[in-house]
Amino acid sequence: MIKRKVYIAGPMSGLPDCNRGAFHLAADVHRALGHIVLNPATLPAGLAEHEYMQICTAMLMCCDEIYLLDGWQQSDGAKAELAMAQKLDFKIVYQEGIDHEITLRGLSA
């Protein structure tokens, strides 16, 4: 069985702790589903925005699916990542209000 490689995208700039909690919860759910997850929220603090985008572009290029967290529309970076994923014909999945904590509880029950 080939595992899906999923890139998590969403808003980070200007949010408390760069929205890492939402990214990590989504990543945990995808891992529980057996996916390989590339999560930009694991990158260290202190880089410039263009450096994050360079790294994230390379991460995205390793995937075959992009998962967009709620609020992605307010993120220039997530919109750019979505455009690239569309151009490369990746599977595109939207969070659309999914409660990851409930999903994780269901997966571990």
Rank of each mutant, 00 (worst) to 15 (best):
E96I: 04
Y52T: 07
I102G: 03
H50Y: 14
V29H: 04
A26N: 02
L68Y: 05
D76W: 10
L82P: 04
A32Q: 12
L38S: 00
G77Q: 08
H100E: 12
M84V: 05
A27E: 12
A41E: 13
Y7W: 15
Y67W: 12
G21E: 14
P16I: 07
R105I: 06
D99L: 06
A26D: 03
L25S: 05
I66M: 02
R4A: 08
K87G: 08
V6N: 05
M61F: 11
M61W: 13
Y94V: 06
L38Q: 01
D89W: 08
A58P: 03
L104I: 13
A83W: 15
G46L: 05
G71P: 01
A27M: 09
C18R: 12
I2L: 06
G34D: 01
S108I: 10
Q74C: 06
A27W: 06
Y67V: 07
A83Y: 08
Y94A: 02
P44K: 07
A45T: 14
E49A: 15
A27H: 07
A32H: 11
G14F: 04
L88G: 04
L107H: 09
T42N: 09
Q86N: 14
L104K: 00
M84N: 01
T103D: 00
D99N: 11
D76M: 09
I98D: 02
C62F: 08
L43I: 09
I55D: 13
Q54P: 02
K3L: 06
L104A: 09
A58I: 10
S108N: 12
R20V: 12
G10A: 14
A80P: 03
L82V: 11
V29T: 02
A109Q: 13
A83T: 15
L38F: 14
D17H: 07
A83S: 09
A58K: 15
D28C: 03
R105T: 06
G46M: 03
I55T: 10
C63I: 12
D70E: 00
A58M: 07
I36N: 00
M59I: 12
D17K: 13
T42E: 05
A80S: 05
I36D: 02
A85E: 06
L104W: 00
D76Y: 12
G34M: 00
Y7S: 09
S108H: 14
D17P: 09
D17Q: 11
D17M: 11
I92T: 12
I92N: 05
M12E: 03
L60R: 09
Y52K: 11
E101K: 05
I36A: 00
R31M: 12
K87C: 08
F90A: 00
I8T: 04
A27L: 00
L69H: 00
L33D: 04
T42A: 08
W72G: 01
I102H: 15
G71H: 07
R105N: 02
D70N: 03
L60K: 14
L38D: 03
L15V: 09
C63F: 09
L47V: 04
T57C: 11
